[in-house]
């Protein structure tokens, strides 16, 4: 079983929800990394969700009879999605936060608010049930199960619904062959339908698409390595996951794209052989970007890489690198930084 190390309070943020719900465009809001694009598409007027809504979620049927009001989120990606949709007041507890919340998502600035952290990791079933939620919203399917937040069917029988971001489904037929922004945006739209905020979802998707459309093509092609974690055997972004999707959007060519997986281990020899022009370093508490820079410079074999010699590093906070509402902003930021590195 899992223990709850402490019940801390985690300072997070709230979306400019009034702005979203009112259906305004993002034109007036600040943009995180890029210039404001042309105004987002106006949302469909007076869209509401008709309940009950039944969803085939990763092979589990989930029926919502009303918009959930007491949600426990697991992983940053789920918390951030709800916050970006202006649903912060529906979150009664969060677990497994990957890092600090963003200050803005697709141009919508976010003001800090506190959401109780019920566990630093996957919470145990009792810690979840103790809060009497009506929905547990998980970033990974594996967050559910008897060792985690509880078996999905068991939760349902107790009147607690379970939901996984659809792009994170693992079963054949549900798992995206190759993750695309369409999948990420479909997650947003489905959440909008579940929570009866379709307009907010439409606006968020439109503004995120605008961020992507705004990305200027690189002056010249660049190859890149996406180093997520690992020391001797780096764990890198491969051909079909969020890293590949973000790198493609930013105009970078992934040196590990040939591996048909979301992430993969890549030997130092294969990395040196590929000699990437740019290295994206994922920054997390357990594998900081600074530590990875040190490793690259200290290993005589990697010290000679073009990217290392010229310090062509782009740092990406971990929470932005898993499929979610922050991916578009990250792609835009990477594109801007990579443009400086083009020969």
């Amino acid at each position: 079983m899992y223990f709850v190390p402490h019940r801390g309070i985690f300072v997070v943020a709230i979306a400019a929800s009034a702005l979203l719900v009112a259906g305004c465009s993002a034109a007036g809001a600040e943009r995180a990394a890029v210039e404001s694009p042309a105004s987002a598409a106006p949302p469909v007027a007076a869209a509401t969700t008709t309940y009950p809504v039944t969803i085939d979620n990763c092979g589990t049927e989930v029926t919502f009879t009303q918009a959930p009001t007491r949600v426990v989120t697991i992983k940053s990606s789920t918390t951030e999605l709800l916050v970006a949709l202006g649903l912060t007041d529906r979150i009664i507890g969060q677990a497994f936060p990957d890092g600090p919340m963003p200050t803005a998502v697709a141009g919508h600035s976010i003001t800090p608010v506190e959401i109780p952290v019920i566990s630093d990791k996957v919470p145990g079933q009792e810690a979840v049930l103790d809060l009497e939620p009506d929905l547990v919203f998980a970033g990974w399917e594996s967050n559910f199960g008897p060792e985690g937040a509880g078996d999905r069917d068991a939760l349902h029988s107790l009147g607690v619904l379970s939901y996984v971001a659809p792009s994170a489904c693992k079963e054949p037929g549900y798992k995206p062959e190759k993750l695309s922004f369409d999948d990420v945006f479909a997650d947003v739209s489905e959440a909008g339908a579940i929570f009866d905020v379709p307009d907010a979802a439409t606006t968020l998707v439109a503004d995120s698409r605008a961020v992507l459309d705004d990305i200027a093509p690189l002056p010249a092609p660049l190859t890149a390595l996406w180093w997520s974690s690992g020391v001797d055997l780096p764990y890198v972004g491969a051909g079909t996951g969020a890293p590949q999707m973000i790198m493609e959007a930013a105009g970078l060519t992934n040196v590990a794209a040939r591996v048909d997986d979301t992430w993969t281990q890549m030997s130092m020899e294969a990395i040196v052989d590929a000699n990437p022009q740019v290295i994206v370093l994922v920054d997390s508490a357990w594998s900081t970007a600074a530590k990875k820079k040190e490793l690259l410079a200290a290993n005589p074999a990697t010290a000679g890489l073009d990217a290392v010699k010229n310090e062509r590093y782009i740092v990406a906070p971990f929470a932005e690198t898993e499929a979610g509402v922050r991916n578009a902003d990250l792609a835009a930021q990477i594109a801007v930084e990579a443009a400086r590195f083009t020969p």
Partner: peptide, 8 residues
């Protein structure tokens, strides 16, 4: 074990 340190 946080993130994927378990792999390491």
């Amino acid at each position: 074990a946080t993130g994927d340190t378990y792999r390491e």
